[in-house]
Design a protein around this nucleic acid. Structure first.
Lengths: 342, 342
DNA sequence: TTGAAAGCGCTAACAA
DNA sequence: TTGTTAGCGCTTTCAA
């Protein structure tokens, strides 16, 4: 009716049901309808009911963009992972997402593909959404991205690593300690000639360096190193073992930077009738859900990925709701899980 | 300065740099700054430069929530998966996300944990964000969720299955055809007594039924069925084979509803010195990246998961930008990949 | 090519 | 407990 009259310079919305529509139907002011939905206890039971009915009748779904703009609370948390298919990180994301959803938050997921340029773009896109928190896999290197992140004032939790200079909160573990522990573990078992099969990322490098340092501290021979790409497939593990056997045939223990690589090494060993762990020991990294039931069961480094996700969710939610988080730096540790391959 | 004067009843924003700040610094109206950023060619080069400089100087990051509210375009796409750790779906999500990001869209990820109630909640939360498109894993059952989805008017692409009654767009393949094809494949190889190890989801059930139908059409013995939970671990595959050997020892071929289950069956067979494929054939589902390099290499059903993600992104973006998508229903098919286990 | 005005749908602040 | 008013930060519409 009145549509025609105000046709001049009137912008129509999407036609979707708005809070005003609901309020009108319930015979209250929009703000009262808002309260009936968001803070029900502050509204009389009768009004609450009328609003509820109006919501049901109209099929109203609140527009969170508008709510977010008005309240400066997006109820959105962004997470950045190198890759989505790698299940090591996704275990964390799964528990993060679960915990967030239960608290009424949505997850935005971005993947960097291990590219710094992409990470930079991604961070800008994320900040543009004004999320209430940001989950990062790994540590942020100094640079434009980090500066923007700090400038945004958005709560950030870095994970999966340790650093003396976190952007904000931190939940991780020491990769150096892992390298050291695995080396010690293997040396204690009497292994003497080591090889490492490693993906090319910075954290794996730190495990590797500590491993080598521990080995040379005992006066043992240099560690033979095989680098694979960032994809870390079973196939690469197989190829790596072939190279090791060719270039360093005396190798009696291999430390792999992922369980899948370890599985590849084991597979290749089986193809060549090399017995594990008698002739060759293998240690993985990650403790993927299936490696405990493999044959032979994989000795590996266990990270409590689910715990990282849960804690991160808690930290982020606490901060989003104005509570302090203390301590804001947590070392969740790791454990070397002894099974059959070493 | 003037802050003090308007202190009464003035709501202050987050203190972040806004478009107005940039505009002021560039000496233009806000709308001109907006145009300089969003439609640069419609603005004079000189003004464009001034605005760019102001952006750099201030570190301005546009508030997409505000932009979205004003333009009714959120540049957000939501995706729903049953679980995040299962890499079958994540391969699709990865390519979906890549394609979306390149087009300036962000991905919101929700997981249902295979629960209908949760899916319902999730859908409501998603619609509240007014995404420009929704990616769904599987087919939406009639119900409140589906009704809301249709009512929202948001472009939807259902995937990973086929149905004569899609909500909107559809990219999938026939699970019945898969069951039938695998049965035919195995029977052609001379296998006669079949078992199925299946997760409890509706799509696996359809593969299973078609498999059984094809088998009984040839007058062969009933298919022995082992159901596992929704988690589908390697361990469950091992347990399943134990059960099969006990309850149906004459079984000569097993069709598993996931590659990981198949890996479990193979592992258990190895533990029991059952030779594959001589004594027992095994077929998986999914063609996970590592199964081709296993020993023995897994015969499985390949789904082009990456293609599904890419197409879905294209469909959703096209529709979000007002272009029609035709055809809106695509069968991407599947293939039975013959390797060593069958 | 630039700008003024209005409003997207909601909530914070204040008042009653 | 309820309502009024004024924005949140941006883009659409219309006018120059």
């Amino acid at each position: 009716m009145s549509d025609k009259e105000i046709s001049k310079k009137t912008r129509r919305g999407t036609g979707a049901v708005t809070l005003s529509d609901v309020a009108k139907l319930a015979g209250v002011a929009p703000i009262t309808a808002s309260r009936a939905l968001n803070t029900p206890d502050v509204v009389s039971p009768e009004v609450r009911q009328r609003v509820q009915d109006a919501v049901s009748k109209t099929g109203y779904v609140p527009n969170r963009m508008a709510g977010g703009l008005a309240s400066s609370k997006s109820k959105l948390i962004a997470a950045v992972v190198p890759s989505t298919v790698s299940s090591v990180f996704m275990e964390t994301i799964e528990s993060l997402n679960d915990a967030l959803f239960d608290a009424g938050y949505q997850l935005m997921l971005g993947q960097t593909g291990y590219s710094d340029a992409r990470e930079e773009q991604l961070l800008e896109a994320i900040i543009g959404r004004r999320p209430d928190g940001i989950f990062l896999t790994g540590i942020t290197k100094p640079g434009k991205g980090r500066t923007r992140l700090v400038a945004s004032g958005i709560p950030v939790v870095e994970t999966w690593d340790l650093t003396p200079t976190p952007v904000d909160m931190l939940i991780g573990f020491s990769h150096s300690d892992i390298g050291h522990s695995v080396a010690s573990y293997l040396m204690a078992k009497g292994y003497k000639r080591f090889a490492i099969v490693s993906g090319s990322d910075e954290r794996a490098d730190r495990r590797l360096k500590a491993f080598c340092a521990a080995v040379s501290a005992q006066g043992l021979a240099d560690v033979h190193l095989v680098k694979v790409g960032s994809s870390r497939t079973l196939k690469q593990g197989r190829v790596a073992l072939s190279q090791i056997l060719q270039d360093a045939p005396a190798t009696d223990a291999v430390f792999c930077s992922s369980d899948l690589l370890a599985l590849g090494v084991i597979t290749e060993a089986r193809a060549r009738q090399i017995s594990i762990p008698q002739q060759l020991a293998v240690v993985g990294f990650g403790d993927a859900p299936f490696v405990s039931d493999m044959l032979p069961a994989l000795t590996t480094v266990r990270i409590n990925a689910g715990q990282i996700g849960q804690m991160a969710a808690q930290f982020l939610i606490d901060r989003a709701q104005g509570r302090a988080v203390d301590p804001a730096v947590v070392d969740v540790g790791f454990s070397v899980i002894e099974r059959e391959t070493a």
